[in-house]
Write a protein that binds this DNA or RNA. Structure first.
Lengths: 346, 346
DNA sequence: TAGCCGCTGGACAACGTTGTCACCTGGGGT
DNA sequence: ACCCCAGGTGACAACGTTGTCCAGCGGCTA
């Protein structure tokens, strides 16, 4: 009798199942299931025998089979733009933490700001039958998600609203934050203020631009077209845009950066110039207080956004049957100095 | 006849299966499977009928069932310390990118530097039957993983070695990097150099201390016990440790920081002091070049570590049957200025 | 002593998919 | 006219688990 022919031994790469455990413990299959799940109705003696068999065989319940049988996967998906971006680390971590409290695992993926990839990822997660999804949208049409949501996949959008679909959403107050930021610059005497932001198809970019325009209008200031530049956040582009504004015949005396990547690039640009230029950035970043001058920012609370989103998600999973909610997380202006620089001339 | 009684309609929360698609298209179950998987042997006409049924019902293959049947999950697990830490973002992203190229999803979790939580997470991932694991260990005993590895779960440890178990490992050259960093300080005239590092149970902390001691010894310099402080990376503790070294009768004239959180805290401490103190940090961080003086660091390539680890993992999954490998990723000293500060006196 | 109850344990089906195998149909060769 | 072959198609079992339901057994009461 060969080794592989014996019932109790397993080939390399195969794992013991409840059946094996049952055979070894000399009990029925269902009894093993009861022990594994801590269900009542098993004598202490039987339980001990089963436990021994489990340990001896190195049995571990196959969750795939369990999931198939039970219908719930106890996992949620998170689709964001880029895990390497410092804004998403804390957000992701916060979502994970809430998931952990609900006994769920987190599967995540980066869309790299590509709508096709976002959809591919989301659908792959749905095929895995995640119980819910937290999505930071890259695209602006999420109708492809409708059948999934109808089928019961709880879905929450974060940072940007869903496109052409109704769903729970958690945003930060891009408009208000931007308006405050620009008002701050105006209060310090600036009249010509530039705005360098993300691509206009991104919702937050549009909102921040709207905040900028609103603040300018409220102060009765005109906005020159040359003071607004939207596009990718690549340093190259930001650099070029900034130079155009700063080297114009009537240069801007202050800059408002639409997100933290832009802000950082602008810090690098400005430190190479002699004339002091004021700067306020949207979104805080780790060492904003250590560069000089320390950078004034509109801080978003990424962790809170993640927590809120995950909270909404699990409320849905627990059966909450309310219309889609939209939560807005307030921003906070942190004045550190770079926004207080006064314009060179009046 | 009620709506729910009709075969083709589904209750809210249930999803159509291949059986439903087959019934609607008037074909057999297996034919649907063939279409879904792009297997050959289906007439164009049949395929079209099936595709229509799929679209009409909003069918999406249930990967849980597929996984159960096929044995492979096309997902890998990543257990790290804290996703919110800037060191792990790029690492995680790199792992994800490689996984994506192999058609696998990434499930990840944070251990919060707690060995029990690490184990819990790893075993949960094994229960999900991930094909492989990338682990940044928090604990120092991984024998609990032996049955899993024997069962075929490819496992790679990153940043720190596995405890009491043989496995593929990707480390960065903590020892060499630290030795070079301290040599750099010595070359700039420092004789009393402090080292503030992470908790001594963490492998990299020990290695970096060893590098420090080796460099000091190589230069024939004594090391005072008061110049070495290992512990948590909380700002409080680092602050206290730094003050003790800087306010001693014979103060250190330079500091070597054991990781990026320590470095950042030390930058904050040092800028409050008048006497210039040299600083070199282990691990680069985003704005190291923007603070003044710009911070000299030993840079680790987190993305490369992630790529290497994932590469090893998938090589194993493709059947490579070699003894465990240990890859060491070199570090790079980036001199930016803070290491070139000369000691106040001789 | 018969009948009943409560408790433990097991047989069996089902979850949705894929692999195996056999069936059917039509066409071409003898 | 017969047979064979190939390609298209479907029936069925299996993956490992959990839910349902029933059987056996011991102790209790009438």
């Amino acid at each position: 009798m060969t080794d592989t022919a014996r019932g109790s031994s397993r080939r390399y790469g195969t794992r013991p199942t409840m059946k094996d455990v049952a055979a070894r413990a000399g009990v029925g299959l269902k009894t093993v299931s009861r022990v594994v799940n801590g269900e009542p109705g098993v004598t202490p003696d039987t339980e001990r025998r089963v436990q021994e068999a489990i340990t001896a065989l190195g049995f571990r319940r196959n969750d795939s089979a369990r999931i198939l049988r039970k219908g719930r996967t106890a996992s949620i998906g998170l689709v964001l733009e880029d895990l390497a971006d410092p804004f998403y680390g804390p957000l992701s971590r916060a979502v994970e933490e809430v998931a952990r409290h609900h006994g769920a695992l987190l599967i995540n993926g980066s869309s790299a700001e590509d709508p096709a990839r976002e959809q591919e990822l989301v659908l792959a997660l749905c095929a895995r039958r995640v119980d819910g999804l937290v999505v930071i949208p890259a695209g602006d049409d999420h109708r492809y998600l409708a059948p999934e949501i109808a089928a019961g996949v709880a879905t929450v959008f974060v940072d940007r609203p869903a496109g052409r679909i109704e769903a729970d959403t958690v945003l930060s107050d891009s408009f208000g934050g931007s308006r405050d930021a620009v008002a701050h610059l105006i209060a310090h005497g600036h009249r010509r203020i530039g705005f360098i932001g993300d691509q206009p198809r991104i919702h937050t970019a549009k909102e921040r631009l709207r905040g900028y325009r609103t603040a300018m209008a409220a102060a009765g200031l005109p906005v020159d077209d040359a003071w607004v530049s939207l596009g990718t956040t690549e340093p190259e582009r930001v650099h070029t845009a900034a130079r155009a504004m700063l080297d114009a015949p009537e240069p801007v005396t202050a800059l408002f950066a639409g997100n933290n990547r832009v802000t950082v690039t602008l810090v690098r640009v400005l430190r190479q110039r002699t004339a002091p230029v004021a700067l306020v950035g949207f979104d805080d970043f780790e060492l904003a207080d250590l560069v000089s001058p320390a950078v004034t920012v509109v801080a978003q609370d990424a962790a809170r956004m993640g927590r809120t989103a995950a909270g909404l998600l699990f409320r849905r999973l627990e059966g909450a049957d309310e219309p889609p909610r939209r939560e807005e997380i307030p921003t906070r202006l942190i004045a550190r100095g770079s926004g207080e620089i006064r314009p060179a001339r009046g």
